[in-house]
């Protein structure tokens, strides 16, 4: 990796760690000066960009995500558990998603048994649970795409939904997807294209070019999926494991994007099975059935 490439990678990693842009430029500039003067290879001096950025972030005590202990997990019958990720952030806004008493059976097997969830503006709720515990079904019920056997969902504002798979058109280019979803949201073509490009840039992806969605890699296709969910600034975002296929950097970008949305006052529900991020959310809803938890 040459100096230029290493410095670019460092800038990206610093951004992922939520370092202030001004400070980030300063760090990159300092590193560039040092490399220029020493004439040594950057990997030998600083190590990998990711490791150096992590060290910088740690030394600054920074990071966009608020610190806090892991927000515990709750049982569906007992309701969601609130984490402590809110420390240092403004109080949450009004309720945007209110889910009450959702029950769902598939054939004779109960999948969701009286699930409640309330998410306010400026909050992230994580839905966790074992395979087959009904996470995606729960999200589809919240989106109104699947009917529950019982229960009510109230959404205050507009909805954005990112499905686990599908949700794109194989033969359309990414920017055509922006136009399609943007038109539904009442956006002009120019505004939809600009908003899509801006959100894609936040995920470190350039959507320009004539590549049909079917030819995108799995991770890039999921980025497209995520961008479409956020297009038009919906008040409530329902994201069903949207990071499948993401590499490490994209995964960090994804959480950065979530925190930006949260800071912008959106209510977010994200289905996840990656428990290492649960300290970064406000509420955790565990759909693992009680008998599995006991065992």
């Amino acid at each position: 990796m040459n100096h230029h490439g290493w410095l670019d990678a460092l800038a990206s990693e610093l951004r992922r760690h939520g370092i202030d842009p001004e400070l980030s430029r300063h760090v990159v500039s300092e590193a560039a000066s040092h490399l220029r003067e020493s004439g040594e290879p950057p990997l030998a001096v600083f190590g990998s960009p990711a490791a150096y950025a992590a060290a910088v972030a740690e030394s600054l005590g920074a990071g966009a995500a608020p610190a806090g202990r892991p927000g515990g997990v709750g049982h569906p019958l007992g309701g969601p558990v609130r984490g402590t990720a809110r420390a240092g952030r403004p109080a949450p806004g009004p309720v945007r998603l209110d889910v009450r008493g959702i029950r769902k059976r598939y054939r004779r097997r109960p999948v969701l048994t009286g699930v409640d969830l309330t998410v306010r503006a400026g909050e992230i709720a994580a839905v966790v649970g074992a395979n087959g515990s009904g996470k995606s079904t729960f999200l589809r019920i919240c989106a109104g795409l699947t009917s529950p056997d019982a229960g009510q969902v109230r959404v205050y504002g507009s909805l954005g939904y990112c499905p686990q798979e599908g949700g794109t058109c194989d033969f359309l280019y990414p920017e055509e997807h922006f136009l399609l979803v943007g038109a539904g949201r009442g956006m002009s073509r120019r505004a939809a294209r600009a908003a899509g490009r801006a959100q894609a840039a936040a995920l470190d992806w350039d959507p320009a070019g004539r590549i049909q969605a079917r030819h995108l890699s799995g991770g890039t296709r999921q980025k497209l999926n995520l961008v479409l969910a956020g297009l038009g600034e919906p008040d409530v975002l329902l994201l069903d494991e949207p990071y499948q296929g993401f590499d490490r950097g994209s995964y960090l970008d994804f959480w950065q994007q979530l925190w930006r949305w949260r800071a912008a006052g959106k209510a977010i529900v994200v289905v996840t099975h990656l428990l290492n991020q649960l300290d970064r959310v406000d509420t955790v809803l565990d759909l693992t059935p009680a008998r599995e938890m006991a065992s």
Partner: peptide
């Protein structure tokens, strides 16, 4: 695959 999403997007 995409129609439910479009329905939620205002169509």
């Amino acid at each position: 695959g995409i129609e439910p999403r479009l329905r939620l997007s205002g169509y």
